[in-house]
């Protein structure tokens, strides 16, 4: 009962925030609703028992992707009013794609409904013993069987980072930085000059 309630809450908020993402006038609000949608989908994953996927969704999509969107939205000068004008033009093709997805869903679910044994024919996920959570199960594979690939992937990410820095980092001249040590080391003698101004004359 509580599970069903939780499911409907997460699902309804996900769908609602999905609609709001594309209908908001302010793109910053759109991104915020996108984050809400991600969080609620993560909730759905938790209900399915896939807590690792849920955490990854929050960490990767909210922590990185959505923040990147936010940067792009705030830093690029895009005329959103102009972008919206093509909406009606793109509506037919969007509708067709949506329709195809709907038909595919109906075919699949209809097939399962008519012949329940079909569900078992697909590649079923590995049965996970109750004692091992899926985070632990993944870790046991990743750090033992696939430790070589795991480390290799790490090296690739390091190359990506080094490459990005090599190709874009420039030393800028004339940038003023705050050096706290220098600020603290300043004395009254260095910075203040007392001038005796005679009355009626300038300095």
């Amino acid at each position: 009962m509580i599970e069903a309630l939780a499911f409907y809450m997460f699902a309804a908020i996900t769908v609602a925030s999905g609609v709001l993402v594309i209908s908001m006038r302010n793109p910053v609000h759109s991104v915020l609703f996108l984050i809400l949608a991600f969080f609620n989908s993560a909730g759905l994953f938790v209900l399915l028992g896939a807590e690792f996927l849920a955490m990854i969704l929050v960490v990767v999509y909210v922590g990185a992707v959505a923040v990147l969107f936010m940067f792009v939205v705030m830093m690029l000068d895009i005329n959103y009013v102009e972008m919206r004008q093509g909406f009606l033009q793109y509506l037919p093709i969007g509708g067709v794609i949506g329709l195809i997805l709907l038909v595919e869903l109906i075919v699949m679910l209809g097939g399962w409904h008519l012949e329940p044994e079909l569900i078992a024919t697909g590649a079923a996920p590995m049965p996970v013993p109750i004692s091992v959570t899926n985070t632990q199960a993944l870790g046991q594979l990743l750090y033992t069987h696939y430790v070589y690939l795991f480390q290799a992937a790490g090296m690739i990410l390091l190359v990506a980072m080094v490459g990005a820095i090599v190709l874009t980092h420039r030393k800028r001249t004339g940038v003023k930085k705050q050096v706290i040590r220098d600020q603290l080391a300043r004395t009254v003698e260095d910075s203040v000059e007392l001038v005796k101004v005679e009355t009626g004359k300038g300095i």
Binding site: M155, I156, V166, L167
Partner: peptide, 21 residues
């Protein structure tokens, strides 16, 4: 096939960067 791909990508990514060094 997986270690083949990862090795290939590690090599290629470094080469892309040094091509535009």
């Amino acid at each position: 096939l997986m270690s083949l791909y990862l090795g290939l990508e590690l090599q290629s990514l470094s080469l892309y960067v040094i091509a535009s060094f």
